[in-house]
């Protein structure tokens, strides 16, 4: 077998079968020896209401402290499904591979995917592989679509009320900082790492603790807290107030953003959730998160108020003045998810 992926590996013939048998399928075999069918799958355990989410992953560099594109592709979709109240059960996996891609690299990425699936119980049951000419994609693009039965909820921005409390499950900006450092070779190696982590159990714990008092949740990925909170503000027409002093940030990330003059709010997070909770349930939500391995640094970071005119996000700076947080505009940041 050649060391590099060739166009012929995508033709659907013998080489495609080799690719599947030797690289892709072995990485995905479930714990119970569940055989992965490929073209389509029946999902017997999926009861309504069904939550589905899809995402594509084009990140470079493909390997970074804390994970790789494979781990990200599974975790990212697990989290999208989890934010709608479901435990992700099934997933599809699409690969678009650039001609000349190294087999060893693909093997490592597939192993990563397989590992996350086994750890979380998610089963990849169908997928697709394409090989395209050199230069038409940057190495490897992945797509995952996840399916799960909704276990709690309903949740959504329409349930957010004036007076709700805003919580975050942990430190912000970890993923964005790690990727920017790795991509631009800024020399902060060793202290920055992506927070890439599956949050379905964490949010389920919160839902179990507070029930219907959990109104809405979302993971602040691309565009960070700035983008996600602005989306909520636009959807609800309410004013979301962030308290700068309460934002949990790792010391290494704080240093990094100080040196580069960056704002942490637009930086991506791949293992954090923002939650809107009714005020009397805030303490219980916080406690539930802090008990979980991915929620140890959870914090209450803001509240929801009536907006003077349109929905917007406002931050109380550490000196007590307020400023408006806009949708981030940085086009210059690298592809991060």
């Amino acid at each position: 077998m050649s060391e590099l992926i060739r166009l012929a590996h995508g033709f659907g013939g013998r080489l495609t079968q080799d690719l599947l048998d030797q690289i892709i399928l072995p990485a995905l075999s479930g714990k119970d020896g569940h055989a992965v069918t490929l073209d389509a799958a029946v999902l017997p355990d999926l009861l309504p209401p069904v939550v589905v989410s899809t995402d594509s992953f084009t990140i470079t560099p493909r390997f970074f402290p804390g994970g790789d594109i494979g781990k990200l592709a599974v975790v990212g979709t697990i989290n999208d499904v989890a934010m709608m109240g479901a435990c992700p059960q099934y997933m599809s996996l699409g690969l678009i591979i650039e001609e000349g891609f190294a087999f060893d690299e693909l093997r490592t990425i597939m192993a990563s995917i397989g590992r996350v699936c086994r750890e979380t119980g998610v089963r990849i049951v169908t997928g697709d592989t394409k090989v395209v000419e050199k230069g038409t994609v940057d190495g490897l693009f992945l797509n995952t679509t996840g399916f799960g039965t909704r276990a709690f909820g309903p949740v959504g921005p329409e349930l957010i009320r004036e007076g709700d409390v805003l919580l975050v499950s942990g430190t912000i900006g970890d993923h964005g900082a790690a990727i920017l450092n790795a991509r631009e070779k800024l020399g902060f190696d060793g202290t920055l790492a992506s927070d890439c982590a599956p949050l379905h159990e964490l949010v389920a714990e919160v839902a179990a603790a507070v029930g219907g008092a959990l109104h809405a949740l979302r993971d602040p990925t691309r565009g960070g807290l700035a983008a996600t909170l602005n989306e909520f503000a636009q959807d609800t027409g309410l004013q979301i107030v962030l308290v700068e002093e309460k934002l949990p940030i790792r010391a290494a990330v704080a240093s990094f953003i100080e040196v580069l003059g960056l704002d942490p709010l637009p930086l991506a997070n791949e293992g954090k959730a923002l939650l809107f909770v009714a005020p009397d349930a805030a303490a219980a939500a916080l406690a539930a998160m802090q008990k979980h391995i991915y929620g140890r640094e959870a914090a209450i970071i803001g509240r929801v108020e009536k907006a003077p005119r349109r929905g917007r996000v406002v931050m109380e700076t550490a000196i007590g003045a307020r400023r408006v947080i806009e949708m981030p505009i940085e086009a210059g940041l690298p592809r991060i998810c």
Partner: peptide, 8 residues
Amino acid sequence: DAGGATLT
């Protein structure tokens, strides 16, 4: 020492 990272 830049907050745990080192810079030249």
